[in-house]
Computed example of a mutant assay.
Amino acid sequence: MNGLTITLIVIVVLIVLLVLWGVGAYNSLVDLRNRVANGWAQIDVQLKQRADLVPNLVETVKGYAGHESEVFQKVTEARARAVQAAQDGTPAERAQAEGQLGNALVNLQATAEAYPQLQANQNFMDLQNQLNQLEQKIAYARQFYNDVVQKFNTKIQSVPSNIIAGLFHFKEAQFFEAVDQDRIVPQVSFSK
């Protein structure tokens, strides 16, 4: 073998290794992008279940606390905003709308606590248990989603996988973050 043949073999081996690395990096990015989409779908399922549960919860509380119309109106409006954000909102817009719904539900539950007969109602207790379970599932789904988004975004930003991400137009995903109003404890007032 002469020097030209060895040089050619080295170049071919380097090209093959580079192509294999590129394929691996691309497949890793695709896997993470799909996991982000799956995480978002899981959040979406839980949030839709919560939105579907809200009207039943409101109607049950209305039966005992019918004069608390402002609370019911706020829950209904917050649910409508959450449903609208689910249809055409970004994760940030969805997080804000869902945070408003969560705050409205906290106020609804606080209102319900003022009515001992309601607290003893089996239907209300079942709905409240379902809501609590959904809230736990939503929290887990958010955590999973945000963990995957963090891995995906890190991969997109890290050298050398950022080269593949740029070539194939991978875009960073948005976190599903609590907005500032979610961190504020809601004020509850009973006007009887």
Rank of each mutant, 00 (worst) to 15 (best):
G66C: 06
L131N: 01
L108F: 10
I6T: 03
D88L: 05
A65T: 03
E172G: 12
K62T: 09
K171Y: 05
L101V: 07
F72T: 15
V10M: 02
K48T: 05
S69Q: 14
L47W: 03
V30R: 06
F144M: 04
V19H: 00
L8M: 15
V159E: 04
N132D: 13
A178L: 15
K151T: 02
A178P: 12
Q122C: 07
I15M: 11
I15T: 10
V106H: 08
L131C: 01
I9S: 13
K192N: 12
V71E: 00
D31M: 15
T5G: 13
V23E: 05
V149M: 11
E68H: 01
A141W: 02
R81P: 14
L4R: 15
G24L: 14
L14G: 04
V188I: 13
G102M: 04
K151C: 04
Y26L: 03
I11R: 04
E113W: 12
G99E: 10
L8K: 12
G99M: 12
P116V: 04
E177S: 05
K192R: 12
G39D: 09
I138N: 04
L32A: 07
Q49C: 09
E98H: 08
A173S: 13
P91G: 06
S161L: 04
E113P: 11
Y64A: 00
P160W: 00
